[in-house]
Amino acid sequence: MEQTIPEVIRTVPLQHYVFFAAALFSIGVLGVLTRRNAIIIFMCVELMLNAVNVLLAAFSAYRADPNGQVFVFFIMAVAAAEVAVGLGIIVMIYRNIQNTDVNLLDRLKW
């Protein structure tokens, strides 16, 4: 059964996965660059990571190589840690300035 899962995924052309992941990634990048709310930026970063996950899983299936999926697991774990830390930071800031707009953070000049 383990061998069959890649076959299943392979019924969709690889390009579709690549384009899908690239689109997802681009949306994430655009979001990071254009949005001003820290939480939304953060969510866009997560979107980027998930695009990577999709891509890795697809490649992993197409190459019948489990390494890609293992990598996905690690990305998820790291992303969780990032979520924890990132949300903590955002909460900390919210407590100080009652806002999460990155434009309000101008104590330090860019």
């Binding site: 953060f42 990577v52 900390m92």
Partner: peptide, 30 residues
């Protein structure tokens, strides 16, 4: 507040960079 801001900027930019790095890794893996 300056420390807060540093943390947020560092975090957002750092994780953004991670995302870019990982996409590169994924493509290279492909």
């Amino acid at each position: 507040l300056r420390s807060n801001e540093a943390a947020l900027k560092y975090f957002l930019m750092g994780s953004f960079a991670t995302g870019i790095l990982l996409f590169g890794v994924a493509l290279l893996y492909g």
